[in-house]
Computed example of a mutant assay.
Amino acid sequence: MTDMPFDQQVITIALCALGTMLTRFLPFLLFSGKKATPPLIQYLGKALPCAVFAMLVVYCLKDVKLLSGSHGVPEVLSLAVTLALQQWKGQMLLSIAGGTVLYMFLVQTVFG
């Protein structure tokens, strides 16, 4: 188990819960329906999903070795399926899940 005393465990859990609630409720308190949303926040709402998706792609492909192992074939196929699903349905969750499922299938069965 842990070496942390019970009171510290309770305080840690309470602080985690408070931090989670704060991040969930703060935007509603700061940007109520009474005032217009600032242009910077509107821009971030449009730009960040694409930036997060791009960062996820870079992170997933950073360790691919094209000259050894499977030569990046599972990664390229999964990326192509992810892009095709995104173009077809426009659902980020479906695209990521579809590419991930294909990748896991390929590395565990075909290239495993």
Score class of each variant (00 low, 15 high):
L26C: 05
A51M: 07
L30Q: 13
K34W: 01
L83Q: 07
A14K: 06
P27W: 01
F31Y: 15
L94P: 01
L40D: 08
L48H: 05
V52Q: 04
M4T: 15
L106G: 09
F31T: 08
P38H: 03
L83F: 14
Y59S: 13
G99L: 00
T109W: 03
Q108Y: 01
L102W: 00
M21C: 14
S68N: 03
T37N: 04
T100M: 06
A36R: 14
V73F: 04
I96E: 03
K65V: 10
P49C: 04
T100F: 05
G69A: 09
T82F: 02
W88G: 00
M55R: 02
S95H: 08
M4V: 14
M1L: 12
L61V: 10
M104K: 08
V10K: 03
I13L: 10
W88D: 04
G33E: 03
P38R: 08
K62D: 07
F105C: 06
G45K: 10
L66K: 13
F28L: 08
K62M: 05
K65Q: 15
G112D: 02
D7Y: 09
Q91P: 08
A97I: 15
D7E: 11
M4L: 15
G72R: 11
F53N: 10
L30M: 15
C50R: 13
D3E: 14
L83S: 12
S32K: 14
L48A: 06
P5W: 02
V57P: 02
F31A: 09
D63L: 04
I41D: 08
G72H: 00
A84T: 13
Q108D: 03
A80M: 14
V58T: 04
A97P: 03
G98R: 02
A97H: 09
V81S: 00
P5K: 04
K34S: 14
L77G: 07
M104N: 07
L85N: 10
T100W: 00
P74M: 03
G19C: 13
L18N: 06
A84E: 07
K34N: 07
S95V: 00
G90Q: 09
A17S: 15
P5R: 01
K46Q: 05
T12M: 08
D7V: 10
T37Y: 10
A17G: 05
Q42H: 05
L79Q: 00
G98T: 03
V110M: 03
K65G: 03
W88L: 13
C60L: 09
V57T: 06
A84C: 14
V58W: 05
A14P: 07
L106I: 10
Q9I: 11
A17N: 01
G90P: 12
L56S: 08
L40C: 02
P39A: 11
A51Y: 06
V107P: 05
V57M: 06
F111G: 00
Q8S: 10
V64L: 01
F28M: 03
M1A: 10
D63H: 12
V76H: 00
L66R: 14
